[in-house]
């Protein structure tokens, strides 16, 4: 009768039940939403870039102001409490574009305001984006080094 003294066989059976009975993520629905929303955000980004190109910028030059506009939109949507609702249905479709990066920066900034500007916002600003930035820079360094050593030209 005692669960604690349960033999290893029961625990193994339990682990099997946990895996077998665990409710599954709605994968098809999640993928469809991620595709739709991620695509829509990219489409908006493309329009913004075309807008800057019509102002006489080259596609390369238009990249920077486009990123600034999208980050601004993502930050605004976060501040208004919309972006977390979007990500809830779209998952990576909303997290991966640069607007998701804005969300990852602004959310902790809002969150830790109550602990003050220095030890709150200042210290916690990168709690979410930090791992991506840290390892992203490390990866960029490795790739850059490999390119230098192998003499690959783009």
């Amino acid at each position: 009768m005692q669960a604690q003294g349960a033999d290893e066989a029961l625990r193994a059976r339990y682990r099997y039940w946990v895996e077998a009975m665990r409710p599954k993520k709605p994968l098809a629905r999640n993928l469809a939403w991620a595709f739709g929303v991620g695509g829509a955000i990219s489409e908006v980004g493309q329009w913004v870039q075309w807008f800057f190109q019509r102002q006489g910028m080259s596609p390369d030059q238009a990249g920077t102001p486009t990123a600034i506009v999208l980050v601004g939109l993502g930050a605004l949507a976060t501040g208004l409490g919309w972006y977390d609702r979007l990500t809830k249905v779209a998952g990576m479709g909303a997290s991966l574009p640069i607007t998701g990066f804005a969300n990852a920066m602004v959310a902790p900034a809002m969150e830790f305001r109550s602990e003050g500007l220095v030890l709150g916002v200042g210290a916690k600003l990168f709690t979410v984006a930090g791992p991506v930035l840290g390892w992203g820079m490390a990866a960029a360094f490795v790739v850059g080094l490999a390119r230098l050593v192998l003499g690959v030209r783009i």
């Binding site: 809830k88 998952g91 997290s95 969300n103 969150e111 979410v128």
Partner: peptide, 17 residues
């Protein structure tokens, strides 16, 4: 949420469990 998981306004998808 803010102690155990993520900042409130950070978007993420919750698990069915």
């Amino acid at each position: 949420e803010r102690q155990f998981r993520y900042p409130v306004e950070l978007g993420n998808q919750r698990y069915p469990t």
